[in-house]
Each structure stands twice: as C-alpha cells, then as structure tokens.
Design a protein around this nucleic acid. Structure first.
Lengths: 173, 173
DNA sequence: TCACGGTTTCACTAGAAACTGAAAATACCG
DNA sequence: CGGTATTTTCAGTTTCTAGTGAAACCGTGA
C-alpha cells in the first residue's frame, strides 16, 4: 500500500513521523506536531478526513489538534464556495512560522514567568542582607534577563526577514 | 509549620512551586524544575535528604532528577572533607544558565532536527517540478533557517555577557 | 420543518511518564 | 575483612495525558 507512493511522499511520511517525536521533546504533543508537519508539506489545503486518513487517527483527535493549531495561528481555515467542509492550510514561510511561535511562547510562557519573578522580588525587597537579600537579587536577575530577552524578541518580531538576516550577519561577520 | 518560616522563604516556596508548573509547560518535568528552582535559590549547597524534605518527594525521585540536572550541567556536585554525603549546587549566574541550556537544547533538539531535514531534502533533490519540488524546497528552507539559527547561537554562546548585552543594545538602540 | 453533511463535545480508555519504597550496590572506615 | 553511611537501581503503583468513538450539535437547502 505504501509501494505506490511517489518517492517524495515517502520522504514526507518520514518527515511527519519524526517531526512528531521531536514535538514531544518540546512540550508539544505528537499528533499536533505531526499535523503541523503534514500541513506544512501539503500541496493543497486538507480537510479533517484527509488528515485522519493520512495519520490514522480519530476524528476527535484530528479535530482538537487542528483547532489548537489554528489557536496558535500556525494554521488557517479555508472554505470553498459550494463546499461545506473546512480545509486547513499551514503557513509555509519559515520566518513567519518563527515569528508566530515566538509571539505565542512569549505570551504563554515567558510573560507569566516574569510576573512570578516580579512578585517574588517585590515581596522581598526589604530584605537588607543575608539569604533573603540574595534571594531578592536572584529574582531580580532572572526578571531582568527575561525582560531583556522579551525586548529583543519584540524587536526581532517586528522586523522583516531580510533586515533580521542582515542584522544577524553582522554578528557572524 | 509554615508560620515559622522567614518571609523570604515563603516567597521562595511560591517560586519553587510555580517554577515547577512552568517546567511542565516546557518539556521539563515538574520535579526537575522544582529542584532546579530550589537549588538556584539555596544559600548553601543541599544534600539529597534536604531536597527530599523540602519538596516532600521520595529518595528515588530526588536522586534521579538531581542526577539529570547534573547531566544538563545546571547543577554540580560538591563534596566536603570529612563528610561522605554529596551536596548539590546550582549555577546561579543567569547568563551562564542561559548558555548552558542553549547548548544542551541545540545538541539534543535542534541538531537532530537538522539531520532529519537534510535527509529529507537529499532524498528529493532530483524532483524537477510539482509537489515533490515544493517539498524539497520546504525541507531546504527549514534546514537553512535552523542552521543559521545554530550559527547565531554558537556565536552568542561564546560571548561574554557584557559583549552580548552591548550587541543586543545596539539592536534596540 | 426535516434530513443531511459536517463540526464539536465528552465520557471513557489505553498508554506513557512520573513517583515510590525498598532492596541492592558501592564507598569508606576502623 | 565486617559494619555503616550513602548512592543507585528498579519493580510496582499512581497519576496524567492523549486518543477514541459515538452522541449531540449546528447550519443549510429542499
């Protein structure tokens, strides 16, 4: 059944499967990563049933993860006139993907962490010396570092790919 | 029992607990993140039993995660003369922590991904047109992007904190 | 209004990951 | 050598997450 696949599709299946495992290493679940890989390499937008079939997963699973990907702004819904089905299409531009993921991670992961650090720093700002003071300083250091990172990210995020590239090249130069 | 804790220790407990949850959002398991937070804010190196007690976890759990952290180079083992126990101490310098984590993630996550992409690109390099060609290009694009990222990371990794800061400031400037 | 194609939800289950506790291994000391 | 303090391993258990499949829920057109 796999024999009939054109060679590039074989490579694609490899890619999808492996991308799934990589996903799990990050916090991302296997199916979500696989669907993303699948759509990134899809010549045309795909519907839920096609995804189900390709990955041999249930409708519920396909549905939830497709919608999650839409929530991450990595996939958009396409509708066709005279067709009630929804089709899904992934962003393929690598730079845009990078921007999108950075934004989301910043919002979901970094910013909450910064809040925690500020809170802990605040609660110990009157510590004059000793372990308490050191703790306070550590919280401030972490906060400062992450906040600075966010600033850099914000700058990069608003850059065009070309400008970012140019900027980075200067560093490597 | 918590009443007797100095205020900074209360903040610390909050920090440790929360850092644990953040950990899970990344691929990191709760306990490992908590131990890391605990050690980062420890005035002195701690031994296994202290960690067990503070976090109310089993010896096995404490042991495995401490050793994992050592494996990540985020924690080092300290021994004291006349004392058979091992003590654990976390790197506290934020920049160094960042460097260490970047290195490890690069090695464990990015480089394997690059290999996969190269392999998939290679296997489809003869596709002349159509979907096969597009797939090939997508693999190449992803590879190029990640490889470039690695180069940038390698440069940053070898920089002193001050130089990196200066460099980043110019961007924000 | 009903029937149909499609989407969404959700109670349940399978499997993975984390954790425990105790036994086994190791290191050190007289 | 014992004997003791500590580390390491691991079988068994718990906990959590991902995934299933079917029922409920739309929206549309006849």
């Amino acid at each position: 059944m796999n024999k009939e696949l054109p060679p590039w599709e074989k490579a694609r299946e490899e890619f999808v499967a492996q991308w799934g495992s990589f996903g799990t290493q990050w916090g991302i679940n296997r199916t979500m990563a696989q669907i993303h890989a699948l759509l990134m390499t899809a010549p045309e937008p795909m519907c839920t049933d096609e995804v189900m079939e390709k990955l041999e997963i249930s409708r519920g699973n396909a549905h939830t993860n497709l919608k999650d990907l839409v929530g991450w702004n990595l996939v958009r819904i396409i509708t066709r006139k005279g067709d009630r089905k929804e089709y899904f299409e992934a962003e393929k531009d690598v730079w845009k993907i990078f921007i999108t993921i950075s934004k989301e991670r910043k919002r979901r992961e970094i910013e909450p962490a910064i809040h925690l650090l500020r809170d802990c720093a605040d609660r110990t700002k009157d510590e004059a010396a000793g372990p308490g003071r050191e703790f306070h300083q550590q919280m401030k250091d972490l906060d400062e570092f992450l906040s600075f990172g966010v600033k850099v990210a914000d700058t990069v995020i608003t850059m065009k790919h070309a400008s970012a590239l140019q900027w980075a090249m200067r560093l490597l130069g």
